[in-house]
Design a protein around this nucleic acid. Structure first.
Lengths: 117, 117
DNA sequence: AAACTTGTTCTAGTCCGCATAGAACAGTTA
DNA sequence: TAACTGTTCTATGCGGACTAGAACAAGTTT
């Protein structure tokens, strides 16, 4: 599994890390059940602090994509479908653009709701 | 033209200002050629610093949406077209994919709502 | 059981972008 | 000319991001 980071990007490092893993799941680079690199290892490999990696991992847990347990590490949840991860990524992109245009949360969700019906 | 600001939002004030104007242009609230409120006036109205407003305006200029000139103020460029259509298209693509995955409307809107917060 | 691994929590410090403030400056308009 | 408006400059305070180190707890390995 490859995680790349751009220190010059305005995006926070922890967000870049979670995005990279999210993408890995989406494109099938990481399979459900697979174990992510240990936080200390990845931190060392990226030249980044342990806490920064952990923060990224915890964001993924909040989305229900991975499981974090001491001793075992970070594991992609078996029911984490790559397609859903991809959709989540698309949602991220959509939300970013909507926010850039100044649309409110209700306006965007309403657009989606109408489009779904 | 109405510009609203949320001091508690994690989004920077200058970004909120540029987003508000961008939205106004996108939805047709502000017509091409129209003049934006003076930076000092808007700053006073929003309870915000002059430089903060100016920074938002300059972001819009960098995007080619407005023209800034001393003495004249900020003017929406005649060729500044609505960009909401593209977003609407992105929403359509998103819901199509979501439907293909068998997700319910509430599940999708919930994903968007969470991502927007 | 003992040793090791790994995430969790806590404190603390540095750095940088955001926002504020005030002033002087330079085109535009009336 | 006088009033208006964006431009540029210096300076200050605040908060989040990131780093750093340590101790801790739960799971795995031998």
């Amino acid at each position: 599994m490859l995680v790349r980071i751009d220190p010059d990007s305005p995006a926070p490092l922890h967000a870049q890390i979670s995005a990279a893993v999210r993408r890995g799941i989406a494109v099938g680079e990481i399979a459900p059940g697979e174990r992510l690199p240990g936080a200390r290892d990845l931190a060392a490999a990226l030249g980044v602090n342990l806490h920064t990696v952990l923060r990224g991992y915890q964001e993924l847990r909040a989305e229900g994509l991975v499981e974090l347990r001491r001793g075992r590490g970070a594991q992609v949840r078996p029911d984490a479908a790559p397609a859903v991860a991809a959709l989540r990524q698309a949602v991220h992109a959509l939300v970013d653009e909507a926010r850039r245009l100044g649309l409110s949360a209700t306006e965007v969700t309403e657009m989606v709701r109408e489009a779904m019906t």
